[in-house]
């Protein structure tokens, strides 16, 4: 929970649309400080749109987006990012032709020096230190994801939004990355993870929510009942 006792990130009845076609039909979700919440669901359910709405990147057409208890509907994404909302998009978003070092250099816009950014990144992900001169495009998928995480963390986020961290990665790498995410959450960061493949993220998630066709039909503690229902939501047999 946040400093005010409430959640750091709260979506209340959020609706969002693309060109008049509504894709989110009233999403309710809460993430407290130090919590990891997994947002699961099949392709096209609206998971990425939910993340974009939470980051202020996609405008919401109804409902409320509250950060630290304050309604921030209408705030620019840049302002929210400066306050401490960090979105790591699907596909990592690193510059493939630049070296690891230069990718990290991009994050000095936050006011931190190049040395500070690099030291923080290499302390958290030592493998990046070994590859500092290597072009980011030649890193393995897991290392690229680490670089994306390291870049995001230099902004000192209070709310971290992760989109499909496991995409294209081997299960062992995914498990390692999610352990790092759990470490980040233990530092008091509110983490919302969007994931299509539930198994890895549910090991570290405090709560989970299932998003199907723009609605959340189930959310709660990830236990056996979720595993039983998840397949039916994915396969479309649940109401």
């Amino acid at each position: 929970m946040g400093a005010t006792g409430g959640p750091l990130l709260e979506l209340s009845g959020v609706r969002a649309a693309y060109d008049g076609i509504t894709v989110l039909h009233g999403v309710d979700l809460e993430v407290g400080a130090g919590q990891v919440v997994a947002l699961l669901g099949p392709n096209g359910a609206g998971k990425t749109t939910t993340l974009k709405a939470a980051a202020g990147v996609h405008p919401i057409s109804g409902g409320r987006l509250l950060l630290g208890g304050r309604d921030v509907c209408g705030a620019r994404a840049g302002e929210l990012a400066r306050a401490g909302v960090c979105l790591i998009p699907e596909g990592r978003g690193v510059f493939p032709n630049l070296s690891v070092r230069d990718n990290l250099w991009m994050m000095t816009f936050t006011g931190r020096t190049r040395e500070e950014v690099e030291d923080a990144a290499y302390a958290r992900f030592p493998v990046l230190g070994d590859r500092r001169a290597q072009a980011a495009g030649t890193l393995s998928g897991g290392e690229q994801q680490m670089l994306a995480l390291a870049r995001g963390l230099t902004t000192d986020p209070a709310v971290l939004l992760l989109d499909e961290l496991s995409m294209g990665l081997a299960p062992l790498v995914v498990a390692d990355l999610y352990e790092r995410v759990a470490d980040i959450a233990r530092e008091g960061v509110a983490v919302l993870v969007v994931e299509q493949f539930a198994a890895a993220v549910l090991k570290i998630a405090d709560r989970a929510a299932v998003l199907v066709r723009g609605r959340i039909p189930w959310q709660g503690h990830p236990d056996g009942s979720l595993h039983a229902e998840l397949s039916s939501y994915y396969l479309g047999s649940a109401p």
Partner: peptide, 8 residues
Amino acid sequence: RAERFVRE
């Protein structure tokens, strides 16, 4: 961090 976030 959470308190600073709320304040900002």
